[in-house]
């Protein structure tokens, strides 16, 4: 019930504070980043944006044992092609290294890579691809795409707004889904919402240039 409600629910754009991830992480994991980025399609054309990873952050909100927390999705890369005045032909692709998720708690971080949660050994990456983008700079944009986690692919809508100045743009938005739809958190303790609630909200804050 909650799952289907979540998927069909109207999504609101929630602005997120500008990300402050340090550039040092990026250098240290440059090799892995290249591997992660290699999963993205090569986009071309005049509306292709280059993501500034040092100024971009993906976060998520979840509720564990009564604690509503915000974690970092860690290493990711994105490929974006978007004409802000004419978004229909645009594309958004993102790839996230699930082994680098930081849920801001040692126990959570110890468990997230395990089979019951992300099973990162078998499914190291999550991907998102949207090719149906509508909206405008004034009203904000809606991207309908497919999110793939743990080998399960489901439609997920991303709503976002863009503030652009010249060739630099900052996009902030949210996507919501249920972890249960992706078999994230299985096994006797997590099959239900007893300890960890189903709804997950991903917060996107991307700075890009073209």
């Amino acid at each position: 019930m909650i799952r289907s409600m979540l998927l069909t629910a109207a999504l609101l754009t929630t602005p997120v504070l500008t990300g402050c991830s340090s550039g040092a992480d990026n250098i240290a994991s440059a090799e892995t980043l290249a591997a992660v980025s290699s999963n993205l399609p090569q986009l071309s054309g005049e509306h292709v944006w280059v993501v500034d990873r040092s100024q971009s952050i993906l976060q998520f909100r979840a509720e564990h044992n009564g604690d509503k927390f915000t974690g970092d999705l860690g290493m990711f890369d994105a490929a974006v092609k978007l004409d802000l005045e004419n978004p229909e032909g645009g594309e958004i692709h993102a790839v996230i290294d699930l082994s680098t998720i930081d849920a801001k708690d040692d126990d959570r971080n110890a468990n997230l890579p395990s089979k019951a949660w992300f099973d990162v050994k078998s499914f190291p990456l999550a991907t998102y691809s949207a090719r149906e983008i509508t909206g405008s700079r004034d009203s904000g944009y809606t991207a309908k795409g497919l999110l793939s986690i743990k080998g399960v692919e489901r439609p997920v809508t991303l709503t976002f707004s863009v503030e652009a100045e010249g060739d630099k743009a900052v996009a902030s938005g949210t996507a919501r889904f249920s972890r249960a739809d992706f078999n994230v958190g299985t096994g006797s303790d997590f099959e239900t919402e007893e300890w960890v609630k189903f709804p997950i909200e991903v917060l996107v804050n991307i700075t890009a240039t073209r």
């Binding site: 040692d106 126990d107 110890a110 468990n111 395990s114 089979k115 019951a116 096994g187 303790d189």
Partner: peptide, 13 residues
């Protein structure tokens, strides 16, 4: 009890 906690796939410190 200690062994049970230690064998549990879920890691809770």
């Amino acid at each position: 009890g200690w062994a049970m906690v230690s064998a549990a796939p879920i890691r809770i410190t």
